[in-house]
Simulated scan of single mutants.
Amino acid sequence: MTFFANIDWSDIGQACLDTLIMLGGSLILTIALGLPLGVLLFLTGQGRLAQNRVANAVLGIVVNILRSVPFIILLIVMIPLTVMLVGTSLGVAGAIPPLVVGPRPSTRGSSRDR
């Protein structure tokens, strides 16, 4: 067990606790902010209970900006790997590796949204 000889298990425990606190905090904030935003976006859509084109457009812009933040972070984090793979982190070639790594399902354009 010399492989684990230099590990300070109290630091591992603290790191696990810190991770759980970060996850819990982000979960609470995501629910507190995201759920009302999503419900408002849905309710202000065309043919819905509180139809309002202006409010729906503004909420749609906010949601689309917030949805792009994780991808922008991924672009930045992947710069070294992207440069190693394609020789640049700029332009179309620089966007390809993060686009391969970070796809996610999207409900945009589904028949239910129309």
Rank of each mutant, 00 (worst) to 15 (best):
A15G: 04
G24Q: 06
I12C: 04
T44G: 03
A15H: 12
L27Y: 15
G38N: 06
Q46S: 11
G45I: 08
I12F: 13
A15N: 02
I31D: 00
L41M: 10
M22E: 12
I12M: 08
V39N: 03
L49Y: 13
T30Q: 04
I31T: 07
L35Q: 04
I31P: 00
L17A: 10
M22T: 13
G25T: 07
Q46G: 05
L27D: 13
G47L: 03
Q46R: 15
L49V: 10
T30E: 06
L17E: 03
C16S: 13
S26K: 13
I28K: 04
T30V: 13
G47I: 02
I21A: 12
D18Q: 06
G24R: 09
M22P: 03
G45R: 00
T30R: 11
S26V: 10
D18G: 04
L29I: 14
T44C: 01
L41W: 05
D18M: 08
L27I: 14
I31W: 09
L33V: 15
I28Y: 12
S26Y: 14
L17H: 14
A32W: 09
T44V: 14
V39F: 04
L49C: 03
L43A: 06
G38S: 06
L29P: 06
T44I: 05
L41V: 02
L43W: 14
L27H: 09
L17N: 05
L23P: 02
T30C: 02
G34E: 02
I31V: 11
G13C: 01
G38P: 01
D18A: 08
L27P: 01
L37N: 01
G13Q: 11
G34V: 02
G13P: 01
T30N: 07
G25I: 05
L27R: 05
L41D: 08
T44Y: 00
L35G: 04
M22Y: 10
A15L: 14
A32R: 09
Q46E: 09
F42E: 01
T19Q: 08
A32T: 07
L41K: 06
L37A: 06
G45E: 02
I12R: 05
T44P: 00
I21V: 15
S26M: 15
V39K: 06
Q14S: 05
F42D: 01
I12W: 10
L33T: 15
L35F: 08
I12V: 15
L43V: 05
L35K: 08
C16R: 12
G45F: 01
G25L: 04
P36N: 08
V39P: 00
G13S: 09
T19E: 11
G34H: 12
G47C: 04
L41H: 12
R48T: 03
L17S: 07
Q14A: 09
L20D: 10
R48P: 02
L37S: 01
L37G: 04
A50H: 07
G47K: 08
G45D: 02
Q46D: 07
T44K: 00
L27W: 11
L20M: 15
G34I: 15
L29S: 11
L41Y: 13
T44M: 00
A32M: 13
G34C: 12
G38M: 08
Q14P: 03
C16T: 12
L20Y: 13
T19N: 14
T19V: 04
L49S: 09
